[in-house]
């Protein structure tokens, strides 16, 4: 947040420059005689008297607040307007923002109640979904990184696996759900399996690319130092590829969070995806809109956690 403000300040400073340029012209005339004198006696030239209009801090802050709060707020209001228009003109099944807000207050008032296996607070729904995402994601990382390493390190492994990866990567993960249900005969493992399939491709592809991108020079350094295989892996291969691996992990985690909602709609059970489907069956549209907002927020949190991890481990960003 602080960083953003700082950046927008810079932009403002630039945008103020143009009017100041106009004032340089008279200043140049004043400097002319000073320069000639300098040619004769080589005196240090008098510091040029640029005069910029003073930039008031209050004005900078006003612009910063406009950028950070007022502009996004305006778009938000616009969306609210469209929403109310839909409610008024198209279908009143879409609840008003006010009604939705009231529902949100109700839902978040008791996020962790348990009234039976099919009736739990929204907090539990999110946690169950997150649990499945984390299980599938962890498996994908555990399998994807070694496979990616092998593909990056060996041309033959790369040749052998690349076509398969290319074919499977663009497949919608949900297409795997029936296979999962057949093989595992249970909902939870199937959902986890779908997340695994979702997450593994970016991890494999980015890890392999990271290993391939290691400069030969680093490996030559290792050879001159006679580092053993384990030392090369620990001191060179892993640190050099970590930025790529983390990029792959960040990509797959955000997709995994999108996919779990869809997967749970099909598998049922406790989870934010099935919650949305359940509320649709109850025609409880306000709850669905609240859930959409919550899914988005959780997505942002996951993304920023991965960003933090990336900043911590990536030598380029430290």
């Amino acid at each position: 947040m602080g960083k953003e403000t700082e950046m927008s300040n810079n932009v403002i400073a630039l945008s103020i420059t143009p009017p100041a340029v106009a004032e340089i012209a008279p200043v140049v005339e004043v400097r002319q005689p000073v320069r000639e004198a300098a040619n004769v006696e080589r005196q240090p030239p008098a510091s040029p008297a640029y005069s910029f209009p003073p930039v008031s801090k209050a004005r900078l802050r006003a612009v910063a607040i406009t950028r950070a709060v007022i502009l996004p707020g305006a778009v938000f209001l616009l969306v609210l307007g469209v929403w109310m228009l839909v409610n008024a003109k198209i279908t009143s099944d879409i609840p008003t923002p006010a009604a939705t807000w009231a529902r949100a207050v109700e839902i978040f008032g008791q996020p962790f109640y348990i009234a039976g296996p099919n009736d739990m607070g929204i907090g539990w729904q999110v946690l169950y979904s997150l649990g499945r995402v984390m299980a599938g994601f962890a498996l994908a990382v555990a399998v994807g990184i070694p496979v990616g390493f092998l593909m990056g390190a060996s041309r033959d492994v790369h040749q052998a696996c690349y076509p398969l990866v290319q074919i499977l990567r663009p497949v919608s993960p949900l297409a795997w759900l029936p296979i999962g249900l057949l093989v595992f005969q249970a909902k939870d493992p199937s959902a986890i399996f779908v997340i695994f399939i979702t997450s593994i491709w970016p991890v494999i592809v980015n890890t392999a690319a990271g290993v391939q991108a290691i400069p030969q020079d680093y490996l030559n350094v290792a050879r001159v130092l006679r580092l053993g295989k384990l030392e090369v892996t620990r001191r060179i291969l892993i640190p050099a590829t970590l930025p790529h691996i983390l990029t792959g992990m960040r990509l797959s985690l955000s997709v995994a969070w999108m996919v779990i909602v869809a997967a749970e709609m099909l598998t049922g059970g406790v989870g934010i995806g099935f919650y949305v489907w359940d509320e649709w069956n109850n025609l409880n549209v306000a709850s669905i809109i609240v859930a959409i907002g919550l899914i988005g927020l959780v997505g942002i949190v996951l993304e920023s956690l991965m960003n933090l991890a990336q900043r911590y481990f990536d030598y380029n960003r430290r």
Partner: peptide, 19 residues
């Protein structure tokens, strides 16, 4: 016939480990 620290190399593009 194999690399070793008794013949240390200064590489053209320094090849320091950036991490």
């Amino acid at each position: 016939n194999s690399p070793g620290p008794d013949r240390a190399v200064v590489f053209q593009n320094h090849s320091l480990l950036p991490w």
